[in-house]
Design a protein around this nucleic acid. Sequence first.
DNA 1: TAGCTTTCTTGACTGGTTCCAGAAAACGTG
DNA 2: CACGTTTTCTGGAACCAGTCAAGAAAGCTA
Lengths: 143, 143
Amino acid sequence: MTPEPRALLKNAGMRVTAPRLAALDWLSTHPHATADQVAEGVRARLGTVSTQAVYDVLRACERAGLLRRIEPAGHPARYETRTGDNHHHLVCRECGRTEDVDCVHGAAPCLEPSDAVGFTVDEAEVLFWGLCPDCRTPKEQTA
Amino acid sequence: MTPEPRALLKNAGMRVTAPRLAALDWLSTHPHATADQVAEGVRARLGTVSTQAVYDVLRACERAGLLRRIEPAGHPARYETRTGDNHHHLVCRECGRTEDVDCVHGAAPCLEPSDAVGFTVDEAEVLFWGLCPDCRTPKEQTA
DNA sequence: TAGCTTTCTTGACTGGTTCCAGAAAACGTG
DNA sequence: CACGTTTTCTGGAACCAGTCAAGAAAGCTA
């Protein structure tokens, strides 16, 4: 996956810009990063990049299906390059650390609500909430 | 459910205040309302109530287990009096309208992640995303 | 490389929510 | 039912992630 950021962008009919390459590249090695973290990673490679540019890049790539965005309640959004499979996530209530969880029930999990009351459902999102090993320790975290 | 707001508060060891009663009462007939909507409902009954008071009431009741809070990505939080059973939700991407969905797989659904990588999981949240009947019509919504 | 289009920069701004201080009210007692 | 204590309410400022706006600077096509 993420065979080549440059190729991914071209295939999606998007312009190949330095911030986009840097963001995709960095996310491929740092999954589940926040916009802020992506900005840092991109800046470490390119120098100055505006916050706005980072948000634009992330949104453009998300719309093109190159990135998937996860928005755990109470935490800033996170991004990952693993798209296509609707895998699930494990989120730490404390620090927001996010990990992948493969689907429990085969490929398409609880994808079908028992009663959609007229809704057109296009996605089932499953989030597992808990504490990561670091935050479970009795130390006094930010709480 | 919501047998008696007053009794619920007492049982939880909480003080019985007018805003709390009004909020609980209003939510019992208007599930999945936002904080703003609760504020309106409460004010319609009591007159002036500060926004802060509403948030405090909601948070206090949430902590006491009297209310459950749902935070769909990109939409303000919503509250409901139906607690205890970990039922799921159907959310409209457009307007944020939220409906209950009973668990597909018996009582506890996909509650067990296949691999928790050291996390202590305490909740599995399932959100079904789609469009509600009103937003699915070909009209030009906010898109 | 001319030229159009898309993307980046800068900076101000928003909405939802929380924090803070002080004032007011509700509770449990006697 | 007056008391002191505890808790909540008020009003305003602050917060954060994320967005909007204008213009400048790049990328892509010819």
